[in-house]
Amino acid sequence: LEARLEQANLLKKVVDAIKDLVQDCNFDCNDSGIALQAMDNSHVALVSMMLKSESFSPFRCDRNIALGINLTSLQKVLRCANSEDILTLKAEDAPDVVNLVFESADSDRLSEYDIKLMDIDQEHLGIPETEYAANISMPSAEFQKICRDLMALSESVAIECTKEGVKFSCNGDIGSGSVTLRSHTNVDKPENNVEIDLTEPVALTFSLKYLVNFCKASGLSGQVKLCLSNEVPLLVEYGLASNSYLRFYLAPKIGD
């Protein structure tokens, strides 16, 4: 494997966003890119990252390899990069280590680190292709604020999507609260758009603790996409350049 990423910062932000959910994971490398799929310990949330080969320049992966990496270790090394550094990831066949090289674009500084790899026996889950009943795009900072605000009142949030808009509501010991968003187009600042694409009304309840955790990815993308259908996990997607993505799935709270 040899993969050069123009922005070391991108990988650093991804790792910062997921490392409180998942600790040890395999980075699966093949000629389409670098993928990661991992569940949190309680099996309530699933992280799925895809960094497509087009996100790298150049990208070369001659044989499929799984790099088992402890994310705390990776975070330590990525913190050694300067914010504008270029990152090259390298690994041999059947590797013991992954090699990270940070290059400064405007100086001759070159730093190099090896991280020891781990043998991680991780099961892969098949995520079915789903036509979601509601697809909502909104500013990622807005979603983060809603989740944090409602978490002050309750541990769970009901998300209801109708023709009227999307309503986030909660009920707790001190009282209740809700935030409703309607479709909204801002020509000057499309990052502030709220788009709601609905085929049928949806109402689901989720744990706010996980949603707040997902929102650590807000720095990766100005917009976040929420995809919901009744009785299936919520998809929270942060789109990255070149069709790469960081996705989180969250199992709903069900029953009475």
Binding site: H124, L125, G126, P128, S156, A251, G255
Partner: peptide, 14 residues
């Protein structure tokens, strides 16, 4: 109240 479901209830092992 509602109970927390698991990812395994929805996504099968490959």
């Amino acid at each position: 109240g509602k109970g927390q479901s698991s990812i395994f209830s929805f996504f099968g092992k490959k």
